[in-house]
């Protein structure tokens, strides 16, 4: 029995709520794990919540014009849009979101959309560091999109569909059916792109938290910053779910989803704690080098 559109919207809100909280806890716990690696105690797991409450509880805020407000709105729309077209749990009515045939293309578009909207808004802020951050971010994004897009093309060729649900369905039936086992090169290229996408070390120079070039959000404050922080959680969750669906066999219930996405996210921390930060030109050269070749190889393998 197909649920009505009203019910689906209600389900989508529940799904969004879950992924927001999951994303926040994920960020908090990963910061904690990083701290342990560095021999520190680290911030509380719930620190992202406090930060968002604090940002939203600021009493005043400044504006630089309409586009300035639209920046975080576009960013949040990009995050939510990405998530809304991915089925979070395979076969679940509640976490199906609005995925339909061809949603893979939409998701790819939405991943880029937020960054572009943010670029417009941050440019309106007029701060030079914003502009530097935007140009760095877009340059690095363009670079890691290449191996990512290649590996998505490989997956699409392999399964003959652009429907994420169908791709997940094709991977059911044990580990040997996962893309990880059937097309490991595509997964490798995508995972390297994922390191760039989640902006952890060594590709963290774009937002470079706590340093002078904080990047695009230099001028954002108060509730606008709160929106960006919320979006970061949603966007992280959405990307993790997408990767899980495309390469790691999806999830048939929420527990499996949590375990798998946690482990995928852990790759970031694992790599990030071991490698220093690259400059933007270095990371662009890196992404357009070996990962792109791996991506091309994966497409060729999938095609023949």
């Amino acid at each position: 029995m197909e649920p009505t559109i009203i019910v689906r919207i209600g389900y989508a809100f529940i799904s969004l709520f879950v992924i927001t909280n999951y994303g926040l806890l994920l960020i908090g716990s990963m910061a904690r794990i990083s701290a342990k690696v560095q021999g520190r105690v680290g911030q509380p797991v719930y620190q992202p919540y406090i930060d968002i409450v604090k940002s939203s509880a600021k009493r005043n805020s400044i504006s630089h014009g309409i586009m300035f407000y639209l920046g975080p709105v576009f960013r949040l729309a990009g995050g939510i849009g990405t998530y809304m077209f991915i089925p979070a749990v395979f076969g679940s009515v509640l976490f199906r979101n609005f995925s339909d045939s061809g949603d893979l293309l939409l998701v790819m578009y939405f991943i880029f959309f937020g960054q572009l909207g943010m670029a417009l808004g941050a440019g309106e802020g007029g701060h030079p560091y914003s502009a530097i951050g935007v140009s760095r971010g877009l340059a690095q994004m363009t670079a890691f999109e290449v191996p990512f897009a290649l590996s998505v093309i490989a997956v699409a060729i392999q399964y003959g569909t652009l429907d994420i649900t169908a791709i997940v369905a094709a991977q059911q039936g044990g580990f040997m059916h996962w893309t990880l086992a059937t097309n490991p090169l595509a997964v490798l290229a995508a995972i390297i792109a994922f390191l760039g996408m989640s902006m952890h070390n060594p590709f963290s120079v774009v937002i470079a938290p706590q340093e002078i070039p904080i990047g695009p959000p230099t001028e954002y404050q108060s509730n606008l910053l709160g929106m960006l922080q919320t979006n970061r959680a949603i966007f992280n969750g959405a990307k993790l779910v997408l990767y899980m669906n495309l390469f790691f066999g999806g999830a048939t219930n929420i527990v499996v989803m949590v375990i798998k996405t946690f482990l995928i996210y852990f790759i970031n921390v694992f790599v990030g704690q071991a490698f220093p930060r690259l400059r933007v030109d270095q990371s662009i050269r890196f992404f357009l080098g070996v990962p792109t070749l791996i991506g091309i190889a994966s497409v060729i393998i999938a095609a023949i």
Partner: peptide, 21 residues
């Protein structure tokens, strides 16, 4: 640094006055 670790008290540095309190 690891020895004093202000992050455990929720203290973080921010590079821009707009975001810091």
């Amino acid at each position: 640094t690891s020895r004093f670790d202000m992050y455990r008290f929720g203290i973080q540095p921010r590079p821009t006055p707009r975001q810091s309190s």
